[in-house]
């Protein structure tokens, strides 16, 4: 699945790049950076990397660290 996702991101990006170049348009650096981020995001989505080897890579690890305590405070400090 992950390879299909990476291929999807890459192929659609390449197609868009080709279409823009063909029409004489110009690509911004940020646009290319965005594509690379999406492709890298798809790579990291392989899951095993984050779940088993490096938990800090998992976005929810950080979200929980940032917002978990305040949400628990909303519940009155008790886990239901």
């Amino acid at each position: 699945m992950i390879w299909v996702a990476i291929a999807g991101v890459t192929i659609s990006g390449a197609f868009d790049l080709w279409r823009t170049m063909r029409s004489g348009g110009r690509y911004s650096t940020r646009f290319v950076v965005c594509w690379l981020t999406l492709a890298l995001g798809a790579v990291f989505s392989s899951g095993a990397v984050a779940h088993h080897w490096w938990p800090a890579l998992h976005p929810l690890y950080w979200l929980d660290a940032l917002f978990g305590t305040s949400t628990m405070w909303m519940y009155g400090g008790e886990a239901p």
């Binding site: 999807g8 659609s12 594509w35 995001g41 798809a42």
Partner: peptide, 9 residues
């Protein structure tokens, strides 16, 4: 691309 990304994510 964002659909592919969200799907795998």
């Amino acid at each position: 691309p964002s659909a592919c990304f969200v799907w795998s994510l």
